[in-house]
Simulated assay, not measured.
Amino acid sequence: MPDPILDRALGRVRAERARDRRRRGGVATAVGAVLAAAVLAGGVHLGRHSVPGDRVVVASAPRARMTATVSPADGWVRLRAVVAGVDPGERCRLVVTDVRGRRHVAGGWVASRGGGDTALAGAVLVDVDDVAAIGVVTEDGRTLVAGATR
């Protein structure tokens, strides 16, 4: 014979678990949308402050996103980037890869505990025509996000 009290208790547990799963899914979707909007806003900001000859690189990976502007100088390049989605406390580097496959570090930072966007500027001694890609690499060598300039 079924126990009505046990059935009712099990029904409540199932309902609470389903509600928690829906709530977590909604939060994850909202966080993803906010991060995507922040990177888009960063791209718009960089695009408005670009000059003719600048190259804009937009890249995304499952967890991190980057918008970067490469500005040519005389034999070297300036970089401005907005990076989002990096785990708090992660030690990162903005890296330029040239057409020969050599990596040049343009800057480094530790991702903020607040988890927001990181805006940074840097420079490397690479001619603008030799820049092949820009990426965010962790201190232990993992590439979080990268995008080609061509």
Score class of each variant (00 low, 15 high):
1 M>P: 12
2 P>G: 04
2 P>F: 11
2 P>Y: 09
3 D>W: 10
5 I>V: 15
6 L>F: 04
7 D>Y: 05
8 R>V: 04
9 A>I: 13
9 A>P: 02
10 L>I: 08
13 V>Q: 12
13 V>G: 05
15 A>D: 14
16 E>A: 15
17 R>M: 08
19 R>E: 15
19 R>Y: 07
20 D>G: 03
21 R>G: 05
23 R>C: 08
27 V>K: 01
29 T>E: 15
29 T>K: 10
32 G>P: 10
32 G>R: 14
33 A>P: 02
33 A>R: 14
34 V>W: 06
35 L>H: 02
40 L>H: 15
42 G>A: 07
42 G>F: 05
43 G>T: 02
44 V>K: 00
45 H>M: 10
46 L>F: 04
48 R>Y: 03
49 H>C: 07
49 H>P: 05
49 H>N: 15
53 G>D: 07
53 G>F: 05
56 V>Y: 03
57 V>T: 09
57 V>K: 12
58 V>C: 02
59 A>M: 02
61 A>W: 00
62 P>I: 01
63 R>C: 01
64 A>R: 06
64 A>T: 15
64 A>M: 08
66 M>P: 07
67 T>W: 02
68 A>F: 11
69 T>D: 00
70 V>G: 11
70 V>R: 13
72 P>K: 10
72 P>D: 12
72 P>V: 11
76 W>I: 05
78 R>T: 11
80 R>P: 01
82 V>I: 14
83 V>C: 11
83 V>R: 11
86 V>S: 02
87 D>E: 15
88 P>I: 05
89 G>D: 13
92 C>M: 12
93 R>Y: 08
95 V>H: 04
96 V>W: 06
96 V>M: 07
97 T>W: 14
99 V>C: 03
102 R>Y: 06
103 R>A: 14
104 H>A: 02
104 H>T: 02
105 V>L: 03
108 G>V: 11
109 W>L: 03
109 W>A: 01
110 V>Y: 01
110 V>C: 01
115 G>L: 00
116 G>V: 05
117 D>R: 04
118 T>H: 09
118 T>L: 03
120 L>D: 00
122 G>V: 11
122 G>L: 10
122 G>S: 10
123 A>I: 04
123 A>K: 06
124 V>G: 00
124 V>L: 04
124 V>Y: 01
127 D>P: 03
129 D>C: 06
129 D>N: 09
129 D>V: 14
131 V>W: 07
132 A>G: 05
132 A>S: 12
133 A>I: 04
135 G>C: 00
137 V>T: 15
138 T>Q: 01
139 E>N: 02
143 T>C: 09
147 G>N: 10
147 G>A: 07
149 T>A: 07
149 T>I: 00
149 T>R: 04
